[in-house]
Each structure stands twice: as C-alpha cells, then as structure tokens.
Design a binder for these strands. Structure first.
Lengths: 215, 215, 215, 215
DNA sequence: CATGAATGAGAGTTCATTCAT
DNA sequence: GATGAATGAACTCTCATTCAT
C-alpha cells in the first residue's frame, strides 16, 4: 500500500495515537510500541517519519499548543467589543478541544516536562506570552496598565489551575461551572480595579459592557 | 554492627534524596540508583526500607502533602478572625516549604501522576478536600453557601495555577506578587458576592475585616 | 522515462559512493542509506542493481583489487630489465590509486573481513598469488629459487605493512620514503642472497642493474 | 553466588570471551549477547562492569597491546648484546601470545578501527612509538642515526605485514619461516648500511655479533 | 527505471528487583 | 543492617530488505 504523500497522513495519525496512549496509559508508559500498535503500524514507522520519540512528542505538543492558540485567535476575531475580546480568550481556554480528557492529559504531560525540556519550555513561553499579550491588549483599554498586567496573569494562572483540577477530577469536573467562575473572577477584578483607580470616565462608558461578562 | 532504630533515619534520608533527584534530573530520570547515590547508600537499601520504588515515591508525596496541610493548619490556629483564617490558608499555600524549587518540582511530579495512580489520586482528594473544607468553613460566615463553595474552588485552583506557573518560570516568578494577586482575587470575589446577594448584615459587620485582606 | 544501459553507470556510481562512505564514516557505519545518499539515489536502487549489500561491497573490493593488479601489470609491461620488472611491481603497490586515503581505507576494510568472508578470502588469495608470481618470475633470474620465494614473500608482506602504517598515520605518512625503504630492503636482500649463494655469474652481469633500484 | 571482589574476575572473563567471539564470529558480529553467552553470564553484566560495549572492547585492546609490549620488554631484559636486543624485539613480535589465531584476529579488528576511534589511535601510537624506541635505541649503536630510524620503521612495518599475512592465511602460514625472514631482512639492511656509510670502526668490532642474527 | 512505504529482527542500554554474603 | 552481584524485561533506535506504485 505504499502510496505517495503518506507523510502528512501518517504524521497526523501518529500524533493522534500519541494523544490517545498518553491519556489511556499515563505519562511514563508512553512507549513507541504502544503508539505504533494504537496507530496500527510498525514501531519503526515512527522513526521513519519523526526520527526520534522526542520529535514525535514535541510535534504532538506543538499540535496541542497550536490548537489552543487557534481556538483563542478564531474567537477573538469574532469579538465586537473589548469585553467580548476578553471573554473570547477565556472561551478559547475552555473550548471542547482543550478540555477534552485527551487534551487535558496531554497538557498534564506537557507541563510536567517543561522545566526539564528546553523545547517544551520554549513552547510554554510562547503560549503564555501570546495569551497574556491578547489579554493585556484588551484590558489596558479598561484598566491601568499595571492592573492590566496583573489581571492578565491572574486569568492565565486561573485557567491553568482549572485545567489541572479538570485533569485530576475528570468526570467529576464541571467545565461550565469553571468557565462561569473564571468570568466572575475577571468581572470582580475589573470592578475592583475601577474602584481603586477611580477611572471614572472608563467606568461610566464601559459599565454596560461589563455586565456582559457573566452571561 | 546493626544499629537500632535506623529505619526512621534512613527513610527520611531517602525521601530527601528523592526530592532532590526529582528536582535536579527531572521526572523521568528518577532512578533508584540516583536516589541511592544521592543518599550515599546502596540501591538495595531502598528495597530494604520501602519495598518498591513506588512505595518510596508514595511516601515522598505523602510527606509533601502532609507538609502543606501542616503549614495551613498551623497558620489557621493563630488566626483571630474569619478573614484571618482565609488569609492563613492562602499564606500556607505560599509558605516557603511549598514554593521552594524542590517542593514545586515534587508537586509537578505528583500532579502529573494523579490520574494514573490511585494512591496519588486519593492523596490529592484528601488534600483538596481539606483545603476546601477550611476555606468553606470560613467563607460561609461571610457569603452565601453556594458562593462560599465557588470562592473556595476558585482559591484552590488559583493556587494550583500559580504553583504551576512557578514550576515553569522558577527564578523569574515573583512569589510575593503572586501572593498579593491571590488575595486581591479573594477580596474582589467576596465584594462581588456581597453586591450580588445583598447580605447586608454580614456586609456591615465584616466590612472592616475585609480591608485586612490586601495587607 | 527508462534509459537504456543505466546499469554500468549506476554500478560505478554506487561503487564510488561506497569507497567514499567507507573512508569517511568508517567500517561499521557503512549503511546502504549513506551510500545511496552519497550517490544521490534512493536506497532501493542498491538492491535493484546489486541485490544485497554484500554484493555491492564485494564488487567494490573486486574493483579495488583489479585496480592494483592493473597498476602492476601496466608498469611491468614497460620494464626493460629484470630489475626494472621488480621495481615496477613495487611501484604499482605504491601507485597513487593504491595509496590514496580512500583506497587505503578500503584495503583496511577488506583485510579485516578476509578471514570471515570466503569471497574476500578468494580475492585475497588471487591478489597475493598474482603479485608473488610476478615477483618470483623476475627474481628467479637473479637468485636461487628458494631465495626468490622468500624475497617475494618479504616484498609482499612489507608492502602490506607499509599500507597498514599508511592507513593508521595518513597525513603523517611519507609515501616516498616508504617507497624508497622498500626498494632498499629488496636491494639488501638480493645482495645478501648473492653473498650466501655465490651466484657469481648473475652477480657479475646484473651488478649494474642492481644499482638502479635505489633511484 | 554474589561473592565480593568479583570485579577483576568478571572483567578478565569478559575480555577473554571478547577475544574468543571476535576470533570465531568475525569483526561485525561482535555482539554483547554473544560475549555474555560465551562467558556464561547475562548481557547486563557487561554494562555493569564496563559501562558500554566500547569500554569493554577498548579494555580488550589495551590488554592485547599490553601483552605485546610485555613480551618485548621481558625478552629485551635478557639480552646481553646489541644484536640480542634487536632479536629480542622481533622475537617478542612473534611470541606465541601474539601469533595465536585469537590474538591475530584481535589485531585485525584493532587495526581496522584505528582511523575511526581516537582511543585506538592513541593506543596504536603508543605501541608503535615503544617498539621504534627500543629498536632505534639498539640500532643507533651499530648504524648511523638516520639509518637506525629507517631500519626500525622497516622492521615494525614488516612485522605488521607478516601479522596481516598470518591473519589471512592462518594455518597455512609458517611462523618460524616468517620469523627467520624478518631477521634476514634486518641483517641485510644493517650490512647495507655499513657498506653505504663506511662505518669502519663499528663494522670491524661488531662483525662477529652480526653473524648471530640469522641463528 | 526509480522510489517511498513499510517492516521485523536485533542491536546496545537502562533499570527495578532479588539474593547470598 | 547493609551491600555488591546478578538478572531479565523492556526500552529506543538502526538497518537491510521487500513491495506497490
């Protein structure tokens, strides 16, 4: 069956198998044999298309992060107001593709290796940077710059915390509730910023928008 | 020359070595040989005192979680008000023993295995349950029961998120700032709860206390 | 678009690539993939034209030995005296095609496998036999038959020794000096043979010729 | 059966097994499994005592070269004249421990890897240097310095050539004859040196000694 | 004629564990 | 109590070869 142009097909297939085995068997039972069996091919196919196990995993993680950033970017494009933009980012973080059990297991694996793998570290920095950039871009229209930074950090970390919790509680975890809780924190923090900073003008003009957050 | 009562000494010594190797060499280079070398003993000593590698790691994680709960419990005992109690819990989460690089690496390892190891899962449930119990116990004096649950969950998840971030950014991570940001979220969420729920009585009597949070 | 008569072109091309990879990467990194890459073709081309890796290597070695015997034969034809013939053989052994780094690496590989590969063993016997036959043919006009045999063996072995040395010292090896040293040994041995055997007739008539050797 | 102090025993045992497998199965069938089986132990024992396959082979080769130099050194100590010293070196090169089929196979392996393995290259340099040093030390009492160098090189290379021939022809190779032929070359070359250089004083006084060479 | 796809056998190496001392 | 000896299972990766296109 050697048809031409199998490379992209096999690569995708093997990345999917990696997600699956990672989720099913756990973090330190991720062997090439299992992945190959899952994909229905010989172990050496992996070497053939990826060179090393590391490369396959790196590509899988790259796929994961690319998917998150795409979810966020796509939603952001559709936003029609500053608040909508912020909500879009949070929505992206809670998109089905990111809170599926399989994706969450991959995130768990990814995070656990960031400090010991420079490739992962770089990916994580890029992801963090992108999310924060988007958030600060929107937040700085509503609150003071320093507040914007802190709120952005808070949102990013809160998302990570929810994901971690989801990874641990899986079926018992209520994604919708978590989503709502995240938005409430944002709303609360923005309001606090206003009270502290007396950004009266912004407060007046954006008061209506803010109400949208919890919906 | 058999020494009496070596067991507790050796066990502690090996657990400490486990923390160290885990932090230094990363999650999948945690070999018994390295741990033994680090502790200055023969590999078979580990089997002798712990039986299996799994048991040693489980004991290390148990030590980690015990240490967190102790930090929280100790601080809580000194609290003189409801708000103080909440702050005490957050303070416990950010105690030096929990945000040391070594401890953070252990947490990372622990989290990554929770879904695949029933012992770890049980430990994680206990830890989560304890923290939430403490938080809800205090929060329910200030806000409605459902709000208390949600705020407790928010605080726990936010802590996890900060830890994760700390694990990834290590030296670049500002623990003091994170600590402050966590308290601000709590303050903001409590105030929002008040506004939404018109718990006027509580609002009036506890208004002063709330001010303490950010200090 | 099938081209006619590609076989000899491809075969030569692949044999040259084999020499190159053998020299560059060493004896146990001689893989078909490397050879194919070096030749700029797909790996399966090798199987197509040679059947097996062994066959390719055997053909390469055959090429090597054929080249040595050709060098010797060509020079021998031009010789105008008995001594010239002997010198011609030694000259052939030190011909540029035989003492190039690439060729020397191939010889090294070849020798190391002679005892374990019957094809190589046969080739080596033929090569040895040919060189000795040529030498004895000339020597027996100057010295007694037993002496001729021994001197022929000495010359052959000394050449091998010099090649081996060249293979090991490469750039530091002085080919011209080695060449001269080989001729001196021959001259010395022939003189000794005369002294021992009192071949007075030969001694007288060939004395002048002998002087040529060292030039 | 884990007794203390097994290390030197096992190491020797594994080196011997390496010699054997190398000789029996040839140069590129030298697998750890075979060596371990030959030695009657598990494969992992090799890793346990040597770390890597490379280290085991390097130690084997070190043993080989050490043995040659010891043979030469021991014989040299017993020499009572300059000529005896030279003969002692040649005798060492043809000692049973060096011209046994097993040792010859090891030499063949060793030589074939010298250009691609810096450890082997270093060993080869040391061995060469030592042999030449001994030879020149003795030769310079009989002939001019430049002649001494050239004759030493000739002897070393001739020995290598004979060994190579022995490796290829094994049972058909007459070691005693080769030994004699080597000594004849030395005698012939020394006499030639005298004739060329008119070292009359030395010639007279050492003439008797020289006669010993061929015995 | 030429190729990429695919494989399976086997390589070296790692490692948790058992056991006699 | 403590150790070094020893093992076997499992890992990743390499590579010559076959085959459909």
């Amino acid at each position: 069956m050697p048809k031409l142009g199998m490379a992209p097909i096999r690569r995708k297939q093997l990345i999917e198998a990696t997600y699956l085995v990672l989720h099913r068997d756990g973090i330190d039972d991720l062997t090439l044999k299992k992945i190959a069996t899952e994909a229905g091919v010989a172990t050496s196919i992996i070497t053939h298309y990826f060179g090393t196990k590391e490369a396959l995993i790196a590509d899988t993680m790259s796929d994961l992060i690319g998917s998150l950033l795409r979810e966020v970017r796509d939603r952001r494009k559709l936003a029609s107001s500053t608040i909508d933009e912020i909500v879009a980012i949070v929505d992206g973080n809670f998109a089905p593709s990111q809170v599926s059990p399989t994706a969450i297991s991959a995130w768990l694996y990814f995070w656990s290796r960031v400090p010991y793998d420079s490739t992962f570290d770089r990916m994580q920095r890029i992801c963090d940077y992108q999310l924060r950039k988007y958030l600060v871009h929107s937040l700085k229209d509503i609150v003071a710059r320093e507040e914007a930074d802190e709120i952005a950090d808070t949102i990013v970390c809160l998302s990570y915390g929810f994901w971690l919790q989801f990874a641990h509680r899986q079926g018992d975890f209520d994604v919708v509730r978590a989503h709502r809780m995240a938005l409430q924190v944002i709303e609360a923090r923005i309001q606090m910023a206003w009270q502290n900073n007396l950004h009266l003008a912004a407060r007046t003009s954006l008061a209506a928008d803010t109400k949208q957050i919890a919906t």
